Amino acid sequence: MTLSSPLLLIIGLLVMAGLAWAAVVTARRRAALLARAGVAVPAGRRPYLGVGLTIAGVGVLAIATAGPAAMVPVPRTAGTVILAIDVSNSMGADDVAPTRLAAAQRAARAFVAAQPENVDIGVVAFERGALTTARPDADHSVALKAIDRLKITGGTSLGTAITASLSAITGKQVTIGRDIGYWPSATIVMFSDGQNLGADVEPAAILAQRANVHIHTVGVGTTAGTTVKVDGYHLQTSLEQDTLTLIAQTTGGAYHPASDTARLDGIADTIDLRLTVSDEPLPLAGALIGLALVLLTAGAALTVLRSGRVI
């Protein structure tokens, strides 16, 4: 059980202790006065039961005001989507306005906005290396903020993008040739112009395929291409659809041109949602307040019946 305001519990218990002390002192004085007057209390009589119930009610009320909550397992259906977004130098090209990266960010944000709450979304930014910028989370605002922070840097390694995305899905470092288990509830959506400087694209795609992780690729750019300035040099860059199509086909996904990003919403239908169990807080204050009212009412009623007055 957890408490949102432990200080209120301490204050309430101190009040209860004070009431209990006052009740004991009053009982002793009353017993002494009755003894001096020669009045005997009938055996088995409990004249202070009402006071005890009242004090117990105060104690329960003190616990209730502290905001208690019990952690209970709650089942829910959930899927996982990793948005792998290319941030290599070629994504700075302006053959897609205003730039390829900006277009990819726009499409990624639209995709996130279309997903239901039971889909956890993470973000992986990749160039020659890759970095998980947002772990899979049901709070989609985390993914949106990660998308907005992306900046152009470095070359491109699509194989590294795939293994980094698989690492984000499994929660552990993934390398080529390693058995990572079966993850049918996970999907990778890769936004890239398809240009690749690594040699491990196909092995990485096969690794995803064996784990039953579908990869949907989104081609950003034009086949005609344009030039982009890198370290003072003007380099020709164009959309390479063949590589992106190969990745998608190998893993059971689909290739989507950036001009057709509206169809990305349908990717959610390919996710096999799994049943997960997570601990969630169950507030107990309402039930405890109800119990406290019962105790206080019973205590007041017994006190009135036995003594003719409310203590």
Rank of each mutant, 00 (worst) to 15 (best):
Gly18Ala: 13
Gly18Gln: 08
Leu19Tyr: 03
Leu19Asp: 07
Ala20Gly: 13
Ala20Ser: 14
Trp21Asn: 09
Ala22Pro: 01
Ala22Ile: 09
Ala22Val: 10
Ala22Leu: 14
Ala22Ser: 14
Ala23Lys: 06
Val24Pro: 01
Val24Gly: 07
Val24Met: 14
Val25Phe: 13
Thr26Gly: 11
Thr26Val: 11
Thr26Tyr: 13
Ala27Arg: 15
Ala27Ser: 15
Arg28Phe: 08
Arg28Thr: 11
Arg28Leu: 13
Arg28Met: 13
Arg29Ala: 15
Arg29Met: 13
Arg29Glu: 15
Arg29Leu: 13
Arg30Thr: 14
Arg30Ile: 04
Ala31Ile: 01
Ala31Tyr: 07
Ala31Thr: 06
Ala31Met: 11
Ala32Glu: 14
Ala32Tyr: 03
Ala32Leu: 10
Leu34Ser: 11
Leu34Asn: 11
Leu34Val: 00
Ala35Glu: 14
Ala35Met: 06
Ala35Asn: 09
Ala35Lys: 12
Arg36Thr: 10
Arg36Leu: 14
Arg36Tyr: 06
Arg36Gln: 14
Ala37Thr: 03
Ala37Asn: 08
Gly38Gln: 05
Gly38Tyr: 07
Val39Glu: 13
Val39Gly: 04
Ala40Ile: 08
Val41Trp: 07
Pro42Gln: 12
Pro42Gly: 12
Ala43Leu: 10
Ala43Gln: 12
Ala43Val: 08
Ala43Trp: 07
Gly44Asp: 11
Arg45His: 11
Arg46His: 12
Arg46Tyr: 10
Pro47Ile: 08
Leu49Cys: 07
Gly50Ser: 10
Gly50Cys: 08
Gly50Arg: 01
Val51Trp: 00
Gly52Trp: 10
Gly52Tyr: 04
Gly52Met: 11
Gly52Glu: 11
Leu53Gly: 03
Leu53Thr: 03
Thr54Ala: 15
Thr54His: 05
Thr54Val: 02
Ile55Arg: 04
Ile55Asn: 04
Ala56Ser: 13
Ala56Trp: 03
Ala56Ile: 09
Ala56Glu: 06
Gly57Ile: 00
Gly57Lys: 01
Gly57Trp: 00
Gly57Arg: 02
Val58Leu: 10
Val58Tyr: 02
Val58Lys: 01
Gly59Asn: 07
Gly59Gln: 01
Gly59Met: 04
Gly59Glu: 02
Val60Pro: 01
Val60His: 04
Val60Leu: 07
Leu61Tyr: 00
Leu61His: 00
Leu61Glu: 00
Ala62His: 00
Ala62Phe: 05
Ile63Gly: 00
Ala64Asp: 02
Thr65Gln: 09
Ala66Trp: 04
Ala66Leu: 05
Ala66Asn: 06
Gly67Trp: 01
Gly67Tyr: 03
Pro68His: 07
Pro68Val: 05
Ala69Thr: 05
Ala70Leu: 12
Ala70Tyr: 04
Met71Arg: 06
Met71Thr: 02
Val72Asp: 01
Pro73Cys: 05
Val74Trp: 03
Val74Asp: 04
Pro75Thr: 07
Pro75Trp: 00
Pro75Ala: 12
Pro75Leu: 01
Pro75Arg: 09
Thr77Gly: 15
